[in-house]
């Protein structure tokens, strides 16, 4: 299988930089699966699960919102954070979820880019990744 290069940069660290056979990203309008030689595209990312496969190995991250640009054989994702399952503090995520939901309940209209809405989604993704992938 032809591989391509992936860079995942969080705001304060380089999360992944290397080859991949396949990557699944949480695109704004639905998941984006990328194989080598994908069409050039820039997409917004919503908080979600990111999976990367390379030589029978699979890596998983809980990703926050951000952007990905795919051009030629290079994929660069810039996100606020990307945590692997063992990096997530689930108690903190529960707290965040609670405070975000409280803030949201006081709002009448909420857009997709609302700070509290994103906060809720980020916490949900962290909890989901911990639940589904931590024991593997």
């Amino acid at each position: 299988m032809k591989s391509f290069f992936v860079d995942i940069v969080a705001k304060d660290e380089q999360v992944y930089s290397g080859e991949a056979d396949y990557i699944l990203l949480p695109g704004w309008d639905g998941e984006i699966g990328v194989f080598a030689s994908h069409t050039p595209i820039i997409s917004m990312l919503r908080p979600g699960v990111c999976k990367l496969r390379f030589e029978n190995q699979e890596l998983v991250w809980a990703m926050s919102e951000g952007f990905v640009s795919i051009s030629g054989d290079k994929v660069t994702a810039a996100v606020t954070f990307a945590y692997s399952p063992d990096e997530i503090d689930d108690e903190l995520a529960e707290q965040e979820l609670e405070s975000a939901r409280k803030a949201l309940s006081e709002k009448t209209s909420v857009s997709m880019t609302d700070e509290d809405y994103l906060k809720e989604q980020r916490a949900l993704v962290c909890l989901k990744v911990v639940k589904e992938y931590l024991d593997e």
Binding site: G27, W28, D29, I32, T39, P40, I41, I42, S43, M44, F67, S69, S71, M112, T113
Partner: peptide, 10 residues
């Protein structure tokens, strides 16, 4: 470059 969903939303 294609923008998803749109540059305006980005």
């Amino acid at each position: 470059v294609i923008f998803e969903p749109s540059a305006e939303e980005a």
